[in-house]
Design a binder for these strands. Structure first.
Lengths: 121, 121
DNA sequence: ATGGGAATGAAAATCATTTTCATTTGTGCT
DNA sequence: AGCACAAATGAAAATGATTTTCATTCCCAT
C-alpha cells in the first residue's frame, strides 16, 4: 500500500481545500512540480482512507476532494454553485443505529448528504 | 432534440423507480426489448429536463435516475455479502427538510445509506 | 408517393479513474 | 560502501460510463 505524497495534500490546501484529482494534477504541473497523475490519485485515496480529506461528487460525476474537520458531519451541497455547508447529523446517527440493530447489523457506518439550491442560486 | 422513449420510463418504473442508465439498458435487453444504449441515455436526459425524473450519483460516480416525487426508501447494505435491505427513512426526510430550511436551501433532495455487517457475515 | 424533420442505434470519441508493470528510491543490515 | 528487499512512482494500457457522430429508418403532412 502507498502512503500519501505530502505535496498533494499541500496543493489541495493551496487550492482552497476543494479540488478534483485532475485539477490538483494540473495545478502541480503548472507550478513545475514533477508528479504523475497516478500518484495524485493514490495519494488522495490514501488521504480519504485516513479521513484527512472528504470526497464528494460534482454534478458531472467528477470526484472532488476537500479537507475535512475532525468531527463526523454531513453536507448540504448546492446543486447550482457547489457551495457546501457542514451540518450536524445527530438525528441520522440515531436513525442509522436503530435501523441497523433492527436488522441485526454490526459495525455500521453511514453516508448522508442533502442537496438543493442555495439562496443565491 | 429528442423525445423520451416511453419504454425507458416504464422500465425505470418497473425497476423500482431507481436505476442507472446501464441497468435500464441491461434490463430491457434481458426482457427482449430492442433498444440502443444511446436511446436510453437520450430518453433519460429528456426525462430529467422535463423534471419527470431526478438524477443522483452513486458513490462510484455512476448516475442513477428515479421518478420524481416517488416515495423513496433507503438501503441497509452488508459490506460482507452485499445483501441489501430497504428501510424507511422518515427521520431523514424530516432532518433534511429542517437542515435545508435552516440554511435557506430550496428544491432539496438527499441520499442516505447505512452499511455494516449482517448477522450472517 | 415523396420530402423533410425527428428518432434511432452502431461505432467511435471522450474523460475520469484504475490497473499493470517495470523502474526508481529509500531503508535497514553487514 | 555494498546489498537486499520493500515501498513509491509514473507511463502506458485498460476500464467503464457517458457523449458525439453520422448514416439510416420512421413518420407524418403535403
Amino acid at each position: 500500500m502507498s502512503r500519501s505524497n505530502p505535496r498533494v495534500l499541500s496543493t489541495l490546501e493551496r487550492a482552497g481545500g476543494f479540488a478534483s484529482a485532475q485539477e490538483i494534477y494540473r495545478l502541480m504541473q503548472r507550478e513545475g512540480e514533477s508528479i504523475g497523475l497516478t500518484t495524485v490519485y493514490r495519494s488522495l485515496q490514501s488521504l480519504v482512507n485516513d479521513k484527512i480529506v472528504d470526497v464528494l461528487r460534482r454534478d458531472d460525476g467528477e470526484a472532488i476532494y476537500r479537507l475535512c474537520g475532525d468531527a463526523h458531519h454531513h453536507h448540504l451541497v448546492c446543486k447550482g454553485c457547489g457551495d457546501t455547508v457542514e451540518i450536524e447529523g445527530g438525528a441520522i446517527e440515531k436513525w442509522a443505529k436503530v435501523m441497523a440493530e433492527e436488522h441485526g447489523f454490526r459495525e455500521v457506518g453511514h453516508t448522508a448528504e442533502i442537496f438543493g439550491l442555495c439562496s443565491k442560486c
